[in-house]
Amino acid sequence: PVDVPEGEHKLQSQYCLWYSRRGSGKQSLNFHLNLKLIGRFGSVEQYWRIYSHLVRPGELSSHSDFHLFKSGIKPMWEDDANKCGGKWIVRLRKGLSSRCWENLVLAMLGEQFMVGEEICGAVVSVRFQEDIISIWNRTASDTAVTNRIRDTFRRVLNLPQGTAIEYKAHNDSIKDKSSF
């Protein structure tokens, strides 16, 4: 675990921040090889210290992702915490992702979702014409939980009116081979 110095504000969970960029050729098939751990943190102060050194998602090059997951959960479908889970996804036009991502991250770190241990992590994916933000939870079959996550997700992202969001169980994503 990350050591939190005295005087700093502990978070409920510790987190790992990962970065990935789609490689070319053979490497693109090995998602885990492209996954790089950027940092770990357990306090509010540690989070801001990492954040202040990072490029904001809106300024990342295409096909890059940030993955912010609780310590011990790898940002992959195959992880035990994720394999029965799913994610709420929103597709955003360019220019919105930095603000939305920051809002989502602060809600997650601050435990605003109020769904026990259900939240696994969040991902922002920078693509050619749009950016995609998602929040991952453990149990795709628990509708009460996923509805609660949806309501908080919508509220904290402060999305433009009429923005569609969708839920995808990871199991279905694997079956229909849809990517992030």
Binding site: G7, E45, W48, E111, Q112
Partner: peptide, 21 residues
């Protein structure tokens, strides 16, 4: 036990704390 909960405004303020630099 009790969860450690933080509001957005508090977290944003903490950004300017000397410990967060």
């Amino acid at each position: 036990g009790t969860k450690i909960v933080y509001e957005r405004a508090f977290l944003m303020n903490m950004r300017n704390s000397p410990l967060a630099k």
